[in-house]
Simulated assay, not measured.
Amino acid sequence: MEEESVDGLLRRVQGGETDAYAAVIRRYQQKIHAYCYWMLGDRFEAEDALQEILFKAYRNLHTYRHDHSFTAWLYAIASNHCRSLLRRRQRWRLLMPLLGSRSEEKSAEAVYESSEESQLELLQGLSAKEKEVLILRVFEDRSFEEIGSILGLRPAAARKRFERLRNKLKEQWGLKEETVHERRFEFQ
């Protein structure tokens, strides 16, 4: 028996046969996982990304146009997702010099690897308003325009609130000199 085309499977899924999506997943999961692995450089992170990408594709399948390549559409979702993860990772690494231990030097890489503990350490002692700006900007990778919209602020006010928080963290962690990382982080 000949395998059904991807387009046929997608039409069935869009028609309400959600079980047909399993066949789509089987066709693409190894390729998308490999793509994510090479983009992110971590097998476990690639596995998580794969799950999120396949879910995003399923959730947004109503936007897929059958006159375009499904493979290209799925890879575009994967590309955007991986780039978002990499931006979030980069922002976190740029923030890490603010969290360097006063008594012992840690590289940003080492702190990022223990990011859950570092993230919790960072959030301790911050007000709710400070936490929400930090979470939306660094962990959720939101623009100042999005943050302003979410919090009911103008984008300039959201940027200023983040800048004050950055300076507070810098002072709290005893860093006197502005690093190259901080300057890059401030304007992104």
Rank of each mutant, 00 (worst) to 15 (best):
E113L: 10
F144R: 02
E52Y: 05
S127E: 12
R183K: 15
V6D: 12
Y64I: 04
H68Q: 11
E177H: 13
Q119L: 13
M39R: 15
A108K: 06
K160S: 13
R91F: 14
P97S: 07
H33S: 08
S149N: 12
E105C: 04
L94C: 10
E113F: 06
F44H: 13
E47T: 11
E182W: 03
Q90K: 10
G174W: 10
Q14W: 00
A128C: 05
E146K: 13
L95Y: 13
E4K: 03
Y64W: 08
E121H: 06
A78I: 01
L169N: 08
K131M: 07
Q51R: 12
W73S: 02
K170I: 14
Q172G: 13
S118G: 11
G15R: 09
H62P: 01
I147F: 05
E132Q: 15
L85V: 04
P155F: 02
W92T: 11
G100I: 12
E146W: 03
A46M: 05
R159L: 10
E186W: 12
S101C: 10
R59F: 01
Y75H: 11
F70T: 03
I135G: 02
E2Q: 03
Q172F: 05
R164D: 07
A23S: 14
F70L: 11
E117R: 11
I25E: 13
W38I: 10
S69L: 07
C36E: 07
R26H: 13
R183Q: 07
P97Q: 03
M96F: 06
G8Q: 13
E182P: 10
G152V: 05
Q90Y: 07
Y37V: 09
R166M: 14
L120C: 02
K31P: 08
N60P: 05
L169Q: 09
S118Y: 15
G174S: 07
G100N: 15
E104Y: 06
A46D: 07
A23P: 00
L74K: 03
V138W: 01
R93P: 03
L98Q: 14
R102L: 15
R161C: 02
I32N: 06
E140Q: 15
Y21F: 14
E178H: 08
L175N: 00
S115T: 03
F162C: 07
S101H: 12
L134P: 01
R166K: 11
W38S: 10
K106S: 08
I53W: 02
E109N: 12
L175E: 11
F185E: 03
G152Y: 06
R183L: 11
A110M: 11
H181Q: 12
R102T: 09
V24Y: 00
Q188I: 12
Y58P: 06
T63K: 14
E140V: 01
L74H: 06
N167F: 05
T63V: 08
W92N: 05
G152C: 02
E186Q: 10
H62R: 06
L98G: 04
E171F: 01
